[in-house]
Design a protein around this nucleic acid. Sequence first.
DNA 1: ATGCTTATTGCAACGTGTTGCGATAGACTC
DNA 2: GAGTCTATCGCAACACGTTGCAATAAGCAT
Lengths: 151, 151
Amino acid sequence: MAKGQTNKGLTERLQAALKERGQRWTEQRQIIVDVLAASDGHATGAELVERVRQDDPSATPSTVYRTLDLLEELGLARHHHGPDGRETYHLEETTEHGHLHCRGCGAEQELDAAAAAPILKAITGATGFSADLDHLSLQGLCATCRADQKG
Amino acid sequence: MAKGQTNKGLTERLQAALKERGQRWTEQRQIIVDVLAASDGHATGAELVERVRQDDPSATPSTVYRTLDLLEELGLARHHHGPDGRETYHLEETTEHGHLHCRGCGAEQELDAAAAAPILKAITGATGFSADLDHLSLQGLCATCRADQKG
DNA sequence: ATGCTTATTGCAACGTGTTGCGATAGACTC
DNA sequence: GAGTCTATCGCAACACGTTGCAATAAGCAT
């Protein structure tokens, strides 16, 4: 739960998972995980590429994106698409959550599991569909902007 | 309501709206609207570009995308992002709807306004957020795939 | 029909992300 | 430590979409 050691635990988990699959631990991967852990909230692919290149200028976009894909496969990271279609990544240690994007003020709000529960239930009720909270990315008007429009 | 004449009505509405804004009616725009109307469901940007170029090989992607943006501004078309972040366009005459993408079987389901009502209500209740149905794009497991997993 | 104004087009370059391929370098065996 | 196997890397090219700019042409006035 503390913040300081999540990174180390992550690295260990990663090394173990890779070994088990006959895959390899490399410095690039360490850097990418570090960068991802350091960008505590969300970061776009391009941002991550740039930050990784600050630590290791020889790193290329393809490596970064491939590593991010790998982290997702291992369940250690997630990505979703913002309203403009850009990719946004975050570590799995961040609790599962959805995203609410306000088209009025541009604000991005997170939607935690507790708040989402009734929504997911409504989705299942209406459609039989069991939605993934992590891919739930809504666009609309936040409460403030709705109030502004009324006022 | 009939299917045959929506296209013509659309062109007329478009011409009127453009004139009012001091904008111009061009053959390219006619072609793009026709193509969009002909691809009855949804089409990605790249698909639309290709189809437009079959009718007019001189058309370029930038023109097509700019026209699609214009159509959205005028409220005659919409786009949303698929699970891979690709853009998908459809005419506004298609009733407003959300999208459900099943990660099990890959099927894409539409979610009409009636089915979505309780979901939107749950979203507002949980978050104060008024979500746009047209941007509602969910990923999860459809009823069939859920049953398969259980079985 | 002619000329004027300026919206639209095509081009070219860019940004983000993906893919194929040969070269590099991890990890394991001896 | 040297050799082997192959996962990973860097590069280059591609795909989708966007943007700036000069040339074209739509729409209006005469």
